[in-house]
Write a protein that binds this DNA or RNA. Structure first.
Length: 626
DNA sequence: GCAAGGTC
């Protein structure tokens, strides 16, 4: 029997080959230089000894487009809402897709079975379907039932062997969901992009080579930055007043906080302040207490959390962090780095991965303590599960100095985060002292950390004991050292940072783990937003074009659906998940949602002069400001 | 010249 195996990328094909063949395989070139064909034999349970060829694609091979009669300029943009879709081999400049396509046709000709080894997520399932579709062109045996689907989520040998021995079928519901997404992104993206570009260009508002694009992910992303920018710009600071009281005890000066906090009425604070000053000996300690407090260990690691942490701890951009993680994954050191899951499956042997870290010079002693002296704890379980991949964890040990600098940081972080997850919470005590002075309440607090636990390995987080409070006694008079009225000002929100933008996109389902960083780059290229240094921080500021686009869309569609808010994309995502669960069909979704987009298009087209006017107006306002 | 999603 001959089996053709196809992975999503060459590095996976190579690694799976290594595992299944026990290291003895023959390598042949394919028509595409970054994809190899690996030949070996393997014993499949129901088939016996088989001749296996393992090859790969490089992401999607087929693309969805419109026919030539719907090219830019050949038809009104609105026609793209009902123009027929054409699926064909993607046209890329080095003919990569065509070469990969040809390799699959050739290698599948004599195969008895096709086995799909793409990533186990929605897009991976769709790529698997593309591969099957291509293989079926010249080999009728490789239909849906002749095609196996290997399910795996990391490259540990035992796991890969298990996947090879227990193949499933392709899940066509996932394939349908992806087809649906592609249809919406294409119809809406191209029609609005052509409309916007035509309008701005005909008024001479953008350069000849420029494109004013609309994308279902680009605009919600832009909208987050614009909303924040306007909130900062429109902010008016308000003054407030508060009381600062310092009590002296055993020679130690202890600041107390006023329970009323910041007050916006100056006269009110002044009245109370006068009362206090009239009765300097009236202050009394009313309560002294100590209660346990803790810092929870972190949740298991997701992609977005990885990107946020790398941005915060190492000042590494989302793109760089993911690139480093990807390399660590293909080298077999960490599990698949694109996951939304923040809970480990119940049956996973978590302790075995702790054991593998015992040998390290920096964190080995901690791992040893976790594993061998009963300090190991089952990690907390978050609420997210993508049903495809577990949280990111260190699969295999490696010495840091074998890795490149970015990978060192990311690997060390993944390990420390994992060990922290498997540790106990940090514990301590919080002491509170309450004081009453002329019926006003004040309090002072102190923290004592007694058990550091996970903090010892998760060195990125600080929790330290504060200065010890002196020995106050309940009922005792308090010796006021000083009392002052302080004036403050409310401060505006900060401009959007990359870390916050990633969070917002993630929460609202804008883009995927792998594309969030790209959407941000795209709207920078389009001159909708720009990066700017503010002190030590880097923030995003929208351009006048970016502000105008959002404001014009909001004005035109104020009573209809919003093209700039995340609502539509989120609604689509929810419906895609229903398709994936088999509750509705792709056609149901098209019938329900496409008319709403089309209506928004018609209205935008009708009021297109407003788009240009808003831009002219924003430009004028901003140049007046500067 | 246009989208978003894979991948390099």
């Amino acid at each position: 029997m001959k089996i053709l195996c196809v992975a999503e990328k060459n590095s996976i094909a190579k690694e799976v080959t290594n595992i299944l063949s026990g290291g003895s395989s023959r390598t042949r070139d394919s028509s595409y230089k970054f994809v190899k064909n690996y030949d070996f034999t393997y014993n499949f349970p129901r088939l016996g000894q088989c001749q296996v060829t393992m090859t790969a694609v490089s992401g999607h091979i087929l693309g969805t487009d419109f026919g030539p009669e719907y090219a830019w300029g050949r038809c009104p943009p609105g026609r793209l809402f009902d123009a027929p879709l054409v699926t064909k081999v993607a046209a890329d400049k080095d003919k990569r897709s065509q070469k990969i396509h040809d390799n699959i046709v050739k290698e599948s000709r004599n195969a008895d079975k096709l086995m799909i080894w793409t990533d186990c997520d929605r897009e991976g399932e769709h790529i698997g379907w593309e591969i099957m579709h291509i293989a079926l062109l010249k080999n009728p045996r490789l239909n849906h039932l002749g095609t196996w689907r290997a399910q795996f989520s990391h490259l540990e040998p035992a796991h890969i062997v298990a996947a090879a021995r227990d193949p499933k079928l392709l899940d066509m519901r996932l394939v349908e969901a992806v087809e649906c997404r592609k249809e919406f992104d294409l119809r809406v993206g191209l029609s609005f992009t052509r409309l916007l570009t035509n309008v701005y260009k005909s008024r001479g508002l953008v350069g000849d080579k420029e494109v004013v694009s609309y994308g279902t992910c680009q605009f919600p992303t832009l909208s987050f930055v614009v909303d924040r920018y306007l909130r900062v710009k429109n902010f008016t600071p308000e003054p407030f007043w508060l009381l600062n009281v310092v009590v002296e005890r055993n020679g130690q000066k202890v600041p107390f906080t006023w329970s009323r906090g910041n007050i916006f009425d100056k006269a009110f604070v002044a009245i109370i302040y006068t009362q206090l000053l009239r009765a300097p000996n009236d202050a009394k300690i009313t309560h002294v207490g100590t209660s346990p407090t803790s810092h929870y260990r972190p949740f298991p690691l997701t992609t977005v959390e990885l990107q946020k942490c790398c941005s915060l701890f190492f000042k590494m951009s989302a793109k760089r962090a993911l690139d480093a993680a990807e390399l660590l994954y293909t080298a077999g050191f960490i599990s698949y780095p694109r996951t939304e899951t923040d809970r480990f499956p119940a049956n996973m042997d978590l302790l075995s991965y702790v054991n593998k870290q015992k040998q390290d010079a920096k964190w080995g002693a901690y791992a040893l303590k976790l594993a061998d002296s009963g300090a190991f704890r089952q990690p907390r379980a978050g609420k997210h599960d993508d049903k495809a991949h577990p949280p990111i964890y260190p699969v295999k040990y490696t010495k840091l100095d074998t890795l490149k600098p970015d990978q060192q940081k990311v690997y060390e972080f993944v390990v420390r985060r994992y060990l922290a997850c498997c540790s106990d919470d940090a514990r301590g005590f919080k002491s509170t002292v309450n004081m009453e002075w002329c019926k006003e309440q004040f309090s002072a607090t102190g923290v004592q950390v007694t058990e550091r636990n996970y903090l010892d390995v998760y060195i990125y987080q600080l929790w330290q004991s504060s200065q010890l409070l002196p020995d106050f006694q309940q009922g005792q008079a308090a010796n006021i050292h000083s009392a002052k009225v302080k004036e403050g000002k409310t401060s505006p929100p900060e401009y959007m940072t990359e870390r916050e933008l990633i969070s917002l996109m993630d929460v609202n389902g804008i883009g995927t783990d792998a594309t969030i960083a790209e959407h941000i780059d795209k709207i920078i290229q389009r001159n909708y937003i720009s990066r700017r240094k503010m002190g030590t921080k880097e923030v995003f500021i929208p351009t006048s074009l970016g502000v105008a686009l959002i404001q014009a869309f909001d004005a035109i569609l104020k009573d209809r659906i919003s093209m700039s808010k995340p609502f539509l994309r989120r609604a689509l995502e929810g419906l895609l998940q229903k398709i994936a669960r088999g509750e509705i069909t792709r056609q149901d979704v098209v019938n329900q949602l496409l008319p709403m987009y089309k209506e928004a298009f018609t209205e935008t087209n009708r009021m297109s002069s407003l788009l240009a006017d808003t831009f002219t107006e924003t430009n004028r306002r901003i140049s007046e400001n500067t």
